[in-house]
Amino acid sequence: MTVSMRPKYLFKVPVNARNISPDAFASQTIDKIKKFEVWEGNKKRTLGELFEITGESGETPKETSIQVTGDLRRVKRIGEAMTEGEITIEGNVGMHLGEKMKGGTITVTGDVGSWLGAMMKGGTITVKGNVGDYVGAAYRGSMKGMMGGAIIIYGNAGNEVGCFMRKGLIKIYGSAGQFVGIHMHNGTIFVQGDTEGRAGASIIDGKIVILGNAASVLPSFTFDDVKKKVKVDGEEILGPFYSFTGDLVEKGNGKLYVAKAKNQHLDFYEKYL
């Protein structure tokens, strides 16, 4: 069962729409859903005032799918803490998409703001476009980022992907900014494109794989070996890769794999072989 939504106008101020979620919509009539409270800046509104809503919701969250079409760049927190079901967004969407998500799927055709899947515990988020900073990160001051699930991004990602990540998988087919995986405790991050350096800063454990140019490797990583291939989420990725362990400043045992092909500037490490 699908509920379709379309914004009535381009929102000028941020809209906080945490209850656009299969958990909230399940077993509710469209009329009831229209009366759900949302915040447009500091004004309390109803979903019906901001969105055209049609279709029907399922009996349970699992049977509920939500399709939102339009420019949602200022709409935040869609799918927050959702446990089951499906959200499809055709267009761009704002920050905190799928934050604290526990299950189900979110698919976006356009770009997404920062804090995508922050602190998520399960489920899958797929983004066709680019995303902002702090993918799968923790809230300010917290040491518990993403704790499970998967985030797949076909475009580029900003800085600090997987900050304080504890578990789960982040795959980026485009490029990523600085500090991929900073303070990561565990989990896997794969970047097919380039990164802007400092990957793995202060990580304690986990795995980071960079196929493109890594810009730099921190001096606090120790060079292990050249590896022919690396496994990411059960899939074998062919290298060869320079393999590093770190971050030693945190007595870390994380693994950083950087493809040799795009990183000739690191060949001086081969003298340690």
Binding site: P219, S220, T222, F223, L248, V249, Y269, Y272
Partner: peptide, 16 residues
Amino acid sequence: ELLQAMRMLVKNEELE
């Protein structure tokens, strides 16, 4: 990089 390298030395780790 400089700061992290200093942290390495404070922790008696060797720089490569």
